[in-house]
Simulated assay, not measured.
Amino acid sequence: MRACTLLVLVLTCGSAMVASGAIATPGGPGAMSPPQQGGGSSVTYQKNTLLPPVSRPQQGGGSSVTYQKNTLLPPVSRPQQGGGSSVDSKDGEVRLGVWLEVVIPGSVTPGGNSGNPGGPVCYLRQGHFSELMAWLENHYVAGPDPGEVYILKICKTDQDFELATFWVYQPVPPPAPTVRETTRLRNEAWGQLAIPEPATHMAPSRVTVVHIPTYVWVPAADRTPISATIATTLEGQELSLTATAHPRRLGFLRADMGDGNTLWCDAQDVVEFDPTRDPLDQPSGCFHYYRHPSVNRPDLRYSVVVTAYWEVSVQCEFNGGPCPNPLPAVPTQVLVAPPRPIAVAEVQALATSGWVALSHAPG
């Protein structure tokens, strides 16, 4: 148990309530078996001191059971040799693991019952944190810890009832999702990404001229990151995966210009042509200089093919934190635009106004 936190569990054992002096009869509602030897650890409770932290027993010690909410814990038995026992929890259940036995100094000797008729009669009941605090006169230096369960051993003396021993059961951490499960969800989230096919834009749009820059880009919508999230529950714990696709930073756009040359553009250089600015002073860094006209081509034009490369990252969260198992990487997504024809002319002289006239119809 964590020394600084405990959970308030309002649980009943039939109609037995210690506060009223009524106690469950042996074998009836509320009767329980104490933890068997071989699991957990035992300490002596000292008022106004913290209990030592509970650590999981080594292989062969301790046990893991399933606690059904609002019902008694089953008897805790020594696990089989080889590493304890465990059962799967269902909805509304808390899996419990290691336990800590706490003996109350000065109390009656635990025991009695049918095995020792002359000794004090003791009963086991499942209590909640406020009841435990009342028995210990609020000297238990700890606060509620979500998931912990308490078993109280109450013994009858000549004068009154006493708390002789109590056990604190810790919940077992939820099982981490398997690589197979997270990979399946990764694929679902990845599959929901609608990465756009690139739409090729050029300036000049239809006819360009050798030895001047011909700009290539895709619209903003075709280079904006997109995300998709898949959420589910695993044994009551939240599991979510978010896949995000974004243009590859280096080498986002490849343009096969049709003249045997390939243009590679980083994501930051793929910017729309601005017709209000000088053609030689554009924000775009994605352009190509044709060296030869396209007059020798069968259709008098070059065919430009643009390919966009996207990276996909997946973030996995489980129970409020990162998933323990790394996810397999998603391969780079490659999308190819339909061929875009462009004619390349050769002129001896070109006025600035003429270039602008050619380049004012980008698309």
Rank of each mutant, 00 (worst) to 15 (best):
C4A: 11
V210T: 15
H211W: 07
T232R: 11
T71L: 09
L50S: 14
L163H: 01
L11Y: 05
T307P: 01
T109D: 11
F318C: 05
V216T: 12
L9M: 10
S42Y: 04
T233Q: 14
L96F: 07
T66R: 12
I154Q: 09
V334L: 10
W135Q: 10
V54F: 08
H201T: 09
V218M: 12
S63W: 03
P283C: 08
V94N: 00
T307K: 00
I212L: 12
L11W: 07
V65D: 03
F166P: 00
S205G: 15
I226A: 04
A221T: 14
D88S: 12
C316N: 01
P247N: 02
V336W: 03
V305F: 07
Y67W: 15
P275L: 10
C13I: 01
R95S: 12
A308P: 00
P283Y: 09
T276G: 12
I195P: 02
S227M: 05
D160Q: 13
L335R: 14
V76S: 06
G112L: 06
N48Y: 15
A134G: 04
M17G: 03
A308S: 13
S63H: 09
V209R: 04
G21P: 09
Y289F: 15
P171H: 11
L11D: 08
A255H: 04
D274F: 06
W167M: 00
